[in-house]
Nucleic acid binder design. Structure first.
Lengths: 180, 180
DNA sequence: TTAATCATGTAACACGTTACATGATTGC
DNA sequence: GCAATCATGTAACGTGTTACATGATTAA
């Protein structure tokens, strides 16, 4: 249920349309939670049914009309309930396409695996770069959903996660190279 | 599409029913790819339509009848194509419920966050333990989908991943404790 | 002035999860 | 001898992804 709660969290900042939320989400939460627009619209619908948010139609001339959402008292209560619940510390679901491929790679020449890993390494390096840039950028922006400290923990996580992966790739490539 | 390819990989080992595959999957690939039974049945259906596998009904008396799947020539070709494709080195999708919660945790007392992290730490320690035990176990079993080396890379990954998370938790808890 | 992008959103489909069904067999 | 688990699978529903729609504005 984290998507709903992420949206609630963002709505504590300010009222927003689905489109706004989608952008905001992209800039903040997407580093540890992927979600796309349609999904967000659907969740907002349901959240309104549940009474966590209310929406009102806003007519616009130059732009398409929009529906603006605001968090309700019930929504706020739900958000706090969620945040205080420390039991929900479950492992995130894991689906790692790289490991899947590598697992069966004894069936093909090791050059394929080495290239696979090296390509992935580049992806990691770039992604890490991006997170670091984003940290620098947001350092300057005033309005953050989280207080800076909490926000930093998640970016630290991301950076460290890429570092860990790069290290593992380097070790693994070395091992593959020295096979037989 | 990794699930289909995982199943193809397992089917190179031996013919299996959906039920068998589900068990096999659990013991081998589930460490880096979650999938449940129903999903596997559905994928097998589609894979048969695509001609990657063929199935035959097997009547049984003491047990429910079953449908046994075997990989075809086309399935094998597809598996090799997949394994040789080193461009598909995309970052796995990430949805991290822990980071989502932590991100907004400035809204609640820091004791909640500390407990959250410590609970999660325990989960990691246990999960890491399990992987290590599984490594020890499988060390003895003869039939592995991957050659031992390749299989080990993925378990190394898992262990290192838990270690990384535990380290990050410890640092983060320390930082939260020293806030303000 | 044409192509791209913005600002909004809907619709269709694919994938993932939970619950159920059923007759043996095994464990206590 | 009753409850749990095994060995098989189906059905229903919920979540995630991709594609499309549309009129305004900006970039080249």
């Amino acid at each position: 249920m984290s998507l709903k709660h992420g949206l609630l969290g963002l709505l504590t900042l300010r009222k927003s349309s689905g489109y706004d939320l989608s952008k905001l989400f992209q800039e903040s939460l997407s580093y540890f939670w992927v979600a796309n627009q349609s999904q967000i619209y659907r969740e907002l619908d349901k959240m309104e049914e549940q009474g966590w948010v209310v929406s009102s139609k806003v007519e616009q001339d130059a732009r398409p009309n929009k529906r603006v959402y605001a968090i309700t008292k019930e929504g706020n209560a739900e958000l706090l309930r969620y945040l205080k619940d420390d039991s929900a510390a479950e492992l995130g679901v894991v689906r790692n396409p790289l490991l899947m491929k590598l697992f069966f790679s004894s069936m093909v020449d090791r050059e394929y695996s080495i290239r696979l890993l090296e390509n992935y390494r580049e992806v990691c390096v770039k992604a890490m770069q991006e997170v670091k840039e984003q940290v620098a950028e947001i350092g300057e922006i005033e309005e953050t959903a989280a207080k800076p400290a909490y926000w930093l923990y998640s970016t630290n996580y991301s950076v460290a996660y890429y570092e860990f992966q790069i290290k593992w790739i380097d070790e693994t490539v070395a091992r593959i190279r020295s096979l037989k």
